[in-house]
């Protein structure tokens, strides 16, 4: 069995536990053994954009060292924010001077040597390939019209984008292979407001309203995301009168498609009514 070393992140151990359970079971059903990274720490969720803010690279790089200790060359993430911070810090320490300074600070750890590739679930599924996903998709997603909501951190900046930052198709490809009917909508690459939930909840509500309206207008019956913060905002910070569109994690629809988890009653009813 192929082994995958996996970085959960805080959200997947708390409010997004359902995402973790569904995904890990599905990934195992696809023939992979998943090993959780020992002693991982918070990724920091937002990447440090200031040139001198070295301290905030320490956490991500420490996780890369943990992966290196496991002999892993790839580190799988399910959370889009973890993917973004870890992969950007991995790029940051490709600069030898940055690497030297971070290693010097973490004198209690073995030196990071580079060479861990951070990989998000969507990339991993795309690499597995649509044929393999389609073969495994039983009962499949039965033509469910799904709008994939990418948000920011899977697409920006370009250096770590899982696909074209303005015109991504990677999630749609996965959903189509699993038997869904992907729905494109203009707001799928636009920010949900992210951590403004803590400082400007009203701005988040406006964004969430636009996103859900955009998805609903284009015919989506379900919105799928790979980011626990988008998921939280899209579900818990809706403005009054927003479309009552269900929101699920990519790993959950994967589990429904592979039959490792039943399609929830609410979703099954939607599909049943349409047919």
């Amino acid at each position: 069995m192929n082994r995958l070393v996996y970085f959960p992140g805080c959200a997947l151990k708390d409010q997004a536990q359902g995402y973790e359970a569904a995904t890990l079971a599905a990934v195992q059903a696809l023939g992979y053994a998943v090993q959780e990274l020992p002693r991982w720490n918070c990724c920091g969720t937002v990447y440090a954009l200031a040139q001198d803010d070295l301290m905030r690279h320490v956490g991500p790089v420490r996780n890369l060292i943990r992966a290196q200790e496991q002999g892993a060359t790839e580190l799988l993430t399910l959370c889009a924010m973890c993917y973004n911070t870890l992969s950007r810090s991995a790029l940051f320490v490709r600069n030898p001077e940055n690497l030297r300074r971070i290693n010097a600070f973490m004198d209690e750890e073995e030196d990071y040597r580079g060479g861990v590739r951070v990989l998000h679930l969507v990339q991993w599924l795309a690499e597995i390939g649509p044929e393999r996903l389609a073969r495994a998709a039983n009962p499949g997603l039965q033509g469910l019209r799904i709008g994939a909501y990418y948000g920011c951190t899977l697409l920006r900046p370009k250096e770590v984008a899982v696909d074209h930052p303005e015109k991504p198709e990677i999630m749609e490809g996965i959903l189509a292979a699993l038997g869904a009917e992907p729905v494109l909508f203009p707001e799928r690459v636009e920010c949900c407001g992210a951590y403004l939930a803590v400082t400007r909840p009203e701005a988040v509500r406006l964004r969430v309203g636009s996103i859900l309206l955009s998805a609903a207008h284009h015919g989506a019956e379900l919105v799928v995301t790979a980011c626990p913060l988008c998921h939280f905002n899209l579900r818990e910070r809706r403005p009054l009168g927003a479309p009552r569109l269900p929101v699920a994690y990519l790993g959950e629809v994967l589990a429904w498609a592979l039959g490792t988890q039943p399609i929830p009653e609410e979703i099954a009813r939607t599909v049943g009514v349409r047919r």
Binding site: Q15, C42, M81, A197
Partner: peptide, 30 residues
């Protein structure tokens, strides 16, 4: 960063018990 390092903290955290850590960590860092 320039503002924070000069002691400016113009943003009020509007904490509610349902806020997940993924949001708190982001806001705290910014």
């Amino acid at each position: 960063q320039l503002g924070l390092r000069r002691g400016l903290t113009p943003v009020e955290l509007r904490l509610t018990p349902d806020l997940p850590q993924i949001a708190l960590v982001g806001a705290m860092r910014k």
